[in-house]
């Protein structure tokens, strides 16, 4: 997997000491206590967060990003290795354990791609040399190449998102990664998830996409601002996951055909695995 740690700051040692995060439940939108009161997530786990629009998925991600201590709407609190994180750990970007990829698709900062990445690398205590690697990886996720001298504000939605993914994976490179609806980004989601999920990282993915939801080991179901239940992906679901992955690849292929102005005059709804495999490759 990807591992671009190339600095010797003591903080990187802390990164690899994260064994678990614990979400202590608070209250939902109606003011009632959340049915799920404790969720412990261990290192290396990929957890899904699912639920209808407005059910509080992004707020949950927000609580984890801020390491909420009873100070947000939900009154949740977040523990790292079973302990309350320090103020420094919660706020200083050089000590920050969480990298977040939110639904914000556009950059507001008025600077070029390279200036931005260099500044961010400096904030995170990283060497400037990683900037080119970030752009290279971003360009593997998007169809339209990003140039280092482009203004950030003129990047398309897909380019911005690809750059944010690569930035989170390489510059932020934190042990906890939060991803909000990567499927809407118009970028290659499998590649993006692979780039983001380094060895031992804890990943939380907000998603409506069955392909991504079934790729996770467990998923938190949200409703009315509350964590309702925790589902474990079953053996049957893992079988289904294989099939919908194949289907997804076919859809992706069609998407590329649309993009490049080709005609789509043939498509079979054949779900036989053998056939799907052949057609997909």
């Amino acid at each position: 997997m990807y591992n671009f740690v190339n600095n010797n700051e003591p903080i990187t040692k802390i990164y690899f000491m994260i064994e678990s995060i614990t979400i202590i439940g608070g209250y939902g939108k109606t003011g009632e206590q959340e049915p799920l009161q404790t969720i412990k997530i261990n290192k290396g786990e990929i957890i899904g967060i699912v639920g209808p629009t407005g059910s509080g998925k992004s707020s949950l991600i927000g609580d984890i990003e801020q390491m909420a201590q009873y100070d947000t709407y939900s009154k949740r609190s977040i523990l790292i290795n079973g302990l309350k994180p320090s103020y420094e750990e919660r706020t200083n970007p050089k000590k920050k354990m969480v990298a977040e990829l939110s639904q914000n698709m556009n950059f507001l900062a008025d600077m070029t791609v390279v200036e931005f990445l260099k500044k961010h690398a400096k904030c995170r205590g990283k060497n400037e040399d990683c900037v080119n690697t970030v752009i290279e990886h971003a360009n593997r996720l998007t169809g339209e190449p990003i140039h280092k001298d482009h203004q950030l504000t003129i990047l398309s939605g897909g380019q911005s998102r690809a750059l944010m993914v690569a930035d989170v994976a390489i510059i932020s490179n934190s042990p906890i990664v939060l991803i909000d609806e990567i499927e809407n980004a118009g970028i290659k989601k499998h590649e993006a998830l692979e780039l983001l999920s380094g060895h031992g990282k804890i990943i939380l993915v907000v998603t409506h996409d069955p392909v991504l939801a079934l790729m996770t080991e467990r998923r938190i179901v949200m409703q009315d601002g509350s964590m309702q239940k925790l589902l474990t992906t079953t053996a049957k679901e893992k079988m289904v996951s294989k099939n919908i992955n194949l289907l997804d690849r076919r859809i992706m292929k069609l998407r590329e055909m649309v993009r490049y102005g080709e005609l789509i005059e043939e498509f079979s709804l054949d779900f036989d695995e053998e056939v799907l495999l052949k057609k997909a490759i």
């Binding site: 990003e65 920050k96 939110s102 950059f107 900062a109 400096k122 932020s172």
Partner: peptide, 27 residues
């Protein structure tokens, strides 16, 4: 800070610290 990317938020914070290194920053 919730309407911009985390990277931009971190850069903004750093710019504040450049102008006022002794400030306590609260997001």
């Amino acid at each position: 800070g919730d309407v911009i990317s985390q990277a931009e938020r971190e850069i903004f914070r750093e710019s504040v610290l450049e102008m006022n290194p002794n400030a306590k920053i609260i997001e």
